[in-house]
Computed example of a mutant assay.
Amino acid sequence: MTSGFLRGRMFVHLRRLVAAVVTVVLTVSVGACGAPAAVAPTTVRIGVGGLPLLVYLPTTLAQRLGYYAEEGLDVRLQEYQSGAKALEGLQAQNVDVVSGYYDHAIQMQANKRPVKAFVNMLRYPSVVLAVSPKAGKRITTIADLKGAKVGVTTPGSSSDFLLKYLLVRNGLKADDAVVHAIGGDASAITAMESGRVDAAVMIDPAFSLLQKRMGADRVRVLSDTRTAEGVREDFGVSTYPAAVLYSGTDWVSRNGRVAGKLTKAIVRTLDWMRKHTAAEIAERMPREYAAGDFDTYVQSIEHAKDAYSPDGTIHTDGAEAVSGVLRQFSAEISRISISLEDTFTNEFVNQI
Rank of each mutant, 00 (worst) to 15 (best):
R7S: 08
M10T: 05
F11R: 10
V12I: 08
L17S: 10
V18M: 15
V18N: 12
A20L: 12
A20M: 09
V21T: 13
V22T: 14
V25Q: 14
V28I: 14
V28P: 03
G31A: 14
A32W: 09
G34M: 10
A35G: 06
P36W: 03
A37K: 09
A38V: 13
A40F: 13
P41K: 11
R45C: 03
I46H: 08
P52I: 07
L54H: 07
L54A: 05
Y56R: 05
L57S: 04
T59D: 09
T60W: 05
G66C: 10
G66Q: 13
Y67L: 14
E70G: 06
E71W: 00
G72S: 09
R76S: 10
R76P: 00
E79M: 06
Y80W: 11
E88K: 11
L90F: 10
A92T: 07
Q93D: 13
N94L: 09
V95I: 13
G100F: 09
D103H: 14
A105R: 08
I106A: 09
R113V: 14
M121F: 09
M121A: 04
Y124I: 03
P133H: 13
K134Q: 15
A135L: 11
R138T: 11
T140F: 07
D144K: 00
D144N: 02
D144Y: 00
L145F: 03
K146V: 00
T153G: 02
T154Y: 09
P155L: 11
G156E: 07
S158V: 02
D160Q: 04
F161R: 00
L162H: 01
L166C: 00
L172M: 07
A174R: 01
D175N: 09
V179F: 05
A181E: 07
I182V: 15
I182N: 05
I182H: 02
D185E: 07
D185N: 11
I189A: 04
I189W: 01
A191P: 12
M192E: 07
E193A: 15
A199G: 11
A199L: 09
M202W: 10
D204F: 12
F207A: 08
K212P: 07
A216G: 14
R218Y: 02
G230R: 02
E233G: 00
D234L: 13
F235N: 06
V237A: 01
V237Y: 05
A242M: 06
Y246D: 00
T249E: 15
W251R: 02
S253T: 12
R257E: 14
T263V: 10
K264D: 05
A265L: 01
R268K: 14
M273C: 08
M273R: 03
R274Y: 11
A278G: 10
A279T: 02
A279C: 01
A282R: 01
A282F: 04
R284V: 01
M285W: 12
M285I: 11
P286A: 08
P286K: 06
E288N: 13
A290H: 05
G292R: 01
D293V: 02
F294H: 10
S300Q: 10
E302G: 13
E302D: 11
E302K: 12
A307R: 01
Y308H: 03
T313H: 09
I314L: 15
T316R: 15
R327N: 05
F329S: 00
S337Q: 13
S337I: 05
L340I: 06
E341D: 15
T345H: 06
F348R: 00
F348H: 03
V349N: 06
